[in-house]
């Protein structure tokens, strides 16, 4: 049977992770496909998955009443989406919508949490990678807040 291990191991997020750990993570993974317009996750819904993007494009959006939904970030091949499965109360804080046909591996959040609890070394490895990803996203968000292309004096 073809497993998801090689696919996971090739993804930049899991690059150079020990084989044992790849196997443990792959045990929580399944292949998922989204059509353009389909949502991967919705704000407020239960956050039970960690998406590993293989192809396509996903937009992170925020909606406010009376306003058009604003896209604040997009993801494509090589990206991962979602860390709310890590942090109680495990609820998504954004919408994520596929804008192209999108193929992902979806890792079950509860499954991953359980394995990290059982194997703290795996947990530490994953958390280091997630922390690095969060640092980059936070940095990018700060840059966006700077609005560097805005007309001066406005």
């Amino acid at each position: 049977m073809r497993t998801l291990e090689p696919t996971l191991a090739e993804h930049p997020f899991f690059r150079d992770l020990a084989e044992d750990y790849i196997r443990l993570c792959a045990g929580c993974a399944k292949n998922v496909v989204f059509k353009p317009g389909q949502y991967l996750l919705r704000e407020g819904h239960k956050a039970d998955q960690f998406f590993v993007l293989r192809a396509g494009r996903v937009q992170l959006q925020m909606e406010a009443p009376g306003r058009e939904p604003l896209t604040i970030q997009s993801f494509s091949e090589g990206d991962v989406i979602g860390w709310s499965w890590l942090v109680p109360p495990y609820r998504w804080a954004f919408d994520a919508k596929a804008v192209e046909a999108t193929r992902c591996l979806a890792l079950d959040g509860a499954c991953l949490r359980k394995k990290c609890e059982a194997n703290h070394d795996l947990g530490y490895e994953l958390f280091k990678r997630i922390a690095a990803m969060m640092e980059r996203r936070l940095h990018a968000t700060r840059l966006q807040i700077l609005d560097v292309y805005a007309a001066p004096g406005r």
Partner: peptide, 14 residues
């Protein structure tokens, strides 16, 4: 683009 209204299918982000 730093942010996008609906309809934009390209990259969003810095």
């Amino acid at each position: 683009v730093d942010h996008a209204p609906p309809g934009w299918r390209g990259h969003v982000g810095v």
